[in-house]
Design a binder for these strands. Structure first.
Lengths: 117, 117
DNA sequence: TGCTGTAGTTACCAAAAAGAAACTAATAAA
DNA sequence: TTTATTAGTTTCTTTTTGGTAACTACAGCA
């Protein structure tokens, strides 16, 4: 039993919850699970993400020590993103989220149909 | 290899991702993991949730077949919420999220301090 | 000479999310 | 007779979010 409690409004763990219970976070961490990738690669992979949202998400993850950002001082710029040790501990979690979503979508869609009727 | 791909913008699994990669969803499912609860109980447990957000979250989860809502036609009203079979398959996932948050908050806070300096 | 490519930042605007407060119904208790 | 109770809904307002477009640097290529 720790001092932290996510059910308490003022507990800082709420901030962590906000970060990882986030669509783009799940997709970014999943995309970086196997290999280092450049900004443009991520942008293309995360279909539908805007440049702004991707930058924001990556900055947040970098700040939280989940993603490592390596900048090459070249022109045109080159920036590589990878998971930190801490970030790697999230991989299992986000893959479970993905598998759950892809594995239960049919049930969810059926439930929605039933509800809407 | 299924027909679903969460990395595709138009894939309906994105909707499921939006639902479960959500702060209140994580907390609600966690709160209902062990027992059926009434609306007011949930409201008190989920510190900081507004009535409106809780209602919205519960409706969404009910629509997706994750939460079951049982209404007693009494006055004052009584409504009980519980997890469906589908909802129960989410319990492990949301508990992992909670444990990760509570277990890594210190590392995250330290990383933030470093980044902000 | 001028166009392309990369990984951003910034400003602006529209849309959506979320908070606050007021209102409901019928019964039981004070 | 008034009041409290429960689980909402509704309206209004504020805040946050997110999208679009414009701008940057400089090397390489036609």
């Amino acid at each position: 039993m720790s001092q932290w409690d996510i059910y308490n409004k003022n507990c800082p763990t709420r901030l962590v919850l906000d970060r990882i219970a986030d669509k783009w976070t799940v997709l970014v961490v999943g995309a970086l699970a196997t290999e280092t990738k450049r900004f443009g690669q991520l942008r293309r992979e995360l279909d539908g993400v805007s440049q702004k949202m991707l930058t924001q998400t990556l900055r947040g993850l970098e700040r939280d020590g989940i993603v490592y950002r390596k900048v090459y001082a070249t022109v045109p710029p080159k920036v590589e993103y990878s998971l930190t040790t801490l970030g790697l501990t999230l991989v299992n979690l986000v893959e479970t989220v993905r598998y759950w979503s892809e594995g239960n979508i049919e049930k969810v869609l059926m439930a929605q149909k039933r509800y809407d009727a």
